[in-house]
Simulated scan of single mutants.
Amino acid sequence: MSQSLSRALTILIRLGEGPRTMDQLAEELGVHKTTVLRLVRTLEEERFVHRDRSHGFHLGSRTFELSHAALAQRGIRDIAAPHLAGLNRSTGQTVHLGVYEGGDVVYLDKYESRQPIRMYSRIGAPMPLHATAIAKVLLADLPAAERERVAARLDYTRFTDRTITDAATLLTELRQVAVQGYAVDDAEHETFINCIAAPVRDASGAVVAGISLSVPDVVLGRDQVRALLPELRRTALDVSADCGHHPVNGPAGGGA
């Protein structure tokens, strides 16, 4: 690697840690200020660096464009894959990755349970918005007005005796999901399946996906499934971190 390129990259790395003055950059690179000025001017011209009115240096708008492009090129499915595989290995249970698109919640990925009894689900198939944990965690992040519109248009098919069957109850639960940071499906879609879910957030803090664990009740009871919440939420936070999310006030929530 050329010396100039190495120094320019070091400047970007240092600015990624926080704003710097010319003197600070020169000291950290171990070079004269004129060398830093030459490099910074080139980076400024290409919008990799921005100089404020106090002559402090910050990352420029081109770095934002590249970070978004890098994530878009990988895609949430690729970003989440190693984390989902790890969760599947450690728990032995079915793991799903789902997203909210075009008014539907669909599974993007699935890791099968290692148990003899497995949950039937299919990648790409839409999930009931009122009866699955992963849908609840995705809907809970929508603006209030949009949540209400979604809740008002649902048919509320009753799948089990525990299925939510009206908009008011669903909206109340979605508000609770948003507060607690996870969602549950206590045999609401299938009588023998309990699910928990947590949200994946991007750099802006928006929920872009949900991760869920689905377990037949003959394998684990409801309380045993909920005991897996800390591991599920850690996985969701790890995926969120790889999507550029860095929470300021501790863990953010999720559902499945």
Rank of each mutant, 00 (worst) to 15 (best):
P247F: 03
S90R: 13
A8E: 15
P126G: 02
T94V: 12
G75R: 00
A145G: 09
L220P: 06
Q73V: 10
D223T: 14
F159G: 06
Q3P: 01
I117D: 10
A198F: 03
V150I: 11
A80F: 04
L138E: 01
Q224A: 14
I76M: 07
P251C: 02
T172D: 15
R201Y: 08
T160N: 06
G103H: 06
D186Q: 10
C195G: 09
F57P: 09
A26Q: 03
A152W: 07
E101R: 10
A72H: 08
L171M: 05
D223C: 11
G221C: 11
R51P: 08
L171S: 03
T165D: 15
I13E: 14
D242G: 05
A133C: 08
R38F: 11
I13K: 08
L87P: 04
L84H: 00
Q176I: 12
A183T: 05
G86H: 06
S4C: 05
E231W: 00
A256I: 11
T157S: 10
G254C: 00
G18M: 03
L171K: 02
F57G: 02
R234S: 09
V239E: 04
S54R: 15
E146K: 05
P216L: 08
A144L: 14
G92H: 05
E173G: 07
A144W: 03
P128Y: 08
A168G: 09
S113E: 04
L139Q: 04
A187D: 07
A72P: 03
E46V: 13
L15D: 07
V200D: 05
Y120I: 13
T132N: 04
P143G: 00
P19T: 07
S204N: 09
R77E: 10
R74Y: 06
Q93T: 03
R38S: 14
L228C: 09
R147V: 05
H32T: 13
A140S: 12
D141F: 00
T63L: 11
V99M: 07
Q24P: 08
R47G: 00
D223W: 04
M119D: 05
E190D: 11
L71R: 11
Q24Y: 06
D52E: 11
A178V: 07
P143A: 01
E44R: 13
R20M: 15
I13S: 10
Q176A: 13
P116R: 08
P128E: 06
E188H: 02
R38I: 10
D78K: 12
G244V: 00
E65Q: 10
G98H: 02
E45K: 14
G253K: 01
A252V: 14
Y100N: 02
M119F: 15
D23H: 11
